[in-house]
């Protein structure tokens, strides 16, 4: 086999390992992925291009066990949800949770789901589930994440005791053109599904025309607002594109809208139509920022709301202390519990 072929084969195997290793927490993967890939490659032999099912399932089981061992208990989880500092020995767990796209969705939406469950309005319950997923996958929750980081990792003075340090890293902000472009297509598709469903079920189109006119008016205002945007230097920021390609969101949310529109009649069609009203606003933001890759979504939002631009503070991120040697077990180098009752 040629060297290039071997490299390609090695890459394929590493990708296969990486897929299975997603069962493990992020901090565990950051620390062990290279090592485990080497062990799996030696177990599988030189010709293997993917992890076998038995080894893969073993990794899934190990990943779930690692997450279970790192779980700090309900008390710490509640502390984090209540914006309280997290004990340093659980920082990596907290960082993993805060980095998830659906951070802050559970408490709010579980409460709303509970209310709707009590009210017995099952179509609204279903809507809440869909909106929860929509919020988790599409909308920019980075401000929630930054806020959670500031409070969770505020106890930096005892960081060295747990062999973790809190570092200041550039804050990731979603690029305005990237997000608004996707959002305009997705909300447009969802709104279109609603309107088509409304027409099929014989509903009146007059409110649709009125709503669309208002939405276009709002869009024009947003175009004016984001046009007058004057970004300020942002030394602590990385502007990044959305994670998924636009067509994935269109397929996923278009399908959800079609499935969602079927069983619940015109009420649901109206709700889908209302989602579509956001399309002109997102389209306006995309039009005015598509040649300005340095503009983040938050800048456009602040400009539209006539708020002055704000310089981002750096992001607080716990990382293993380079001065400490060894492997973090359960997220902490075993040098004793720094969060003992005495501290």
């Amino acid at each position: 086999m040629s060297g290039v072929g071997g490299a390609v084969q090695g890459d394929a195997f590493a990708r296969s390992v990486a897929r299975w290793l997603r069962a493990y927490p992020r901090w565990w993967r950051a620390q062990r992925a290279d090592e485990v890939t080497g062990v799996l490659a030696e177990i599988a032999g030189p010709d293997a291009t993917r992890v076998g099912l038995r080894d893969g399932l073993g990794l899934v089981r190990g990943g779930i066990a690692a997450r279970w061992r790192a779980w700090p208990g309900v008390a710490v989880w509640l502390r984090m949800q209540a914006d309280r500092p997290v004990p340093p020995r659980h920082w990596l767990w907290a960082d993993d949770v805060i980095s998830r796209p659906w951070v802050r969705v559970p408490p709010v939406y579980l409460f709303l789901l509970f209310l709707y469950g009590l009210s017995g309005e099952w179509d609204l319950l279903w809507l809440m589930v869909v909106v929860s997923v929509l919020v988790a996958t599409m909308f920019d929750l980075s401000h929630h994440r930054a806020s959670a980081r500031r409070t969770a990792f505020a106890t930096g003075s005892v960081a060295h005791q747990s062999c973790l340090v809190v570092r200041s890293e550039p804050r990731h902000r979603v690029r305005a053109s990237s997000f608004a472009g996707q959002a305009s297509i997705v909300t447009g598709v969802v709104g279109l599904v609603g309107v088509v469903d409304l027409v099929r079920s014989g509903g009146s189109l007059a409110p649709v025309v009125v709503g669309a006119s208002v939405a276009v008016g709002v869009g024009v205002y947003c175009a004016w607002g984001s046009q007058r945007l004057r970004p300020v230097p942002q030394p602590n920021r990385d502007v990044v594109a959305t994670r998924r390609p636009w067509w994935v969101n269109v397929v996923v949310w278009g399908s959800v809208a079609v499935v969602f529109a079927q069983p619940f009649g015109t009420d649901t069609s109206w709700l889908l139509g209302i989602v579509g009203l956001a399309a002109p606003t997102f389209a306006a933001i995309w039009l005015t920022t598509r040649r300005r890759p340095e503009v983040a979504l938050v800048d456009a939002r602040r400009a539209i709301l006539l708020d002055p631009p704000r310089v981002d503070a750096p992001e607080l991120v716990p990382r293993p202390d380079p001065a400490a040697s060894g492997v973090l077990a359960h997220g902490v180098v075993p040098t004793g519990d720094p969060w003992s009752p005495a501290t």
């Binding site: 062990r32 799996l40 177990i43 080894d55 073993g58 990794l59 089981r61 190990g62 066990a65 690692a66």
Partner: peptide, 8 residues
């Protein structure tokens, strides 16, 4: 030992 068990 599989890798999952070993690292556990």
């Amino acid at each position: 030992l599989g890798a999952g068990t070993l690292y556990g």
